[in-house]
Amino acid sequence: MIDIKKTYKNYVDGKYVRSESGKTYTKELKNEFYELPLTSKKDIRDAVTSSKDGYKKWSSTTPYLRMQILYRLSEMIEGNKESYVELLMDHGLTKQKATKDIDESIQNIVWFAGLADKWEQLAGNLNPVSEEYFNISHQNPIGVVFSLSGSNISLNELLMSILPSLTVGCSVISYSEENSVLALKFAEDINNSDFPSGSLNILSGKFENILNDVSKHVEINLVAIHKDLNNGGLKAIEQNASESVKRVFSKPSIEGLSSILPYLETKTVWHPKGT
């Protein structure tokens, strides 16, 4: 009897797609090997088009609903826990470590789910100006975020490169190199959690192939890099980003409230008081 092996594809605009280039790269694990999409420039452009649309849908979803969709994601992962543990073990993790990683992942999703309808209260405030004006600072999500995940094989680390920006209403293009099998498996749970299409796109490949396309794309509002880059990669990204004053964060904080701050634009509105 021959085993059936799963084919992993990029997850763009709510669909599983191959790279338009037709190119793949091989990921060999202990028991299994996978041919994964090698994302091209055109794939990035398609993802950005989808993310722009996804941003409109996701950022206008009520915080109450965003909270429930994120919570639904934790339910999905809980339900598929065994298969995640198995995949992590195939990457070389012990059963204990793999289980811990999934438990922490679920814990963090629940934490961010509960933050979805609270962060505006924590990050915004009324300002006590010294004249008769109503003055309030509140936040908008920054828009389309490109996030390069870290190199450790960990669902939790992958999530921490996505959840802070996703929770506040950004749409996210998550890009993975080393942990791409895990990321593309995770896409299935995203697909089953009622996220609007384009709110989270998940791609795999070699980052250096698309570094310039990402950092020069004017419709990506922020680039977050969650790992150390070789060969002046960060410098190249930041140089390209300066052409459109794009925000770049290298290894941003993932602690508590400070984790979401890079993804917010503060808007302050004034209005006179009077009769």
Binding site: V245, T266, T268, W270
Partner: peptide, 27 residues
Amino acid sequence: DAGVVWANTFNKFDPSSPFGGYKESGF
């Protein structure tokens, strides 16, 4: 898409009121 919106007023400033831009107006 603006860091400061003045409604029925304009060019009001106060040290307690954050000021700064979206997009190419800076960060």
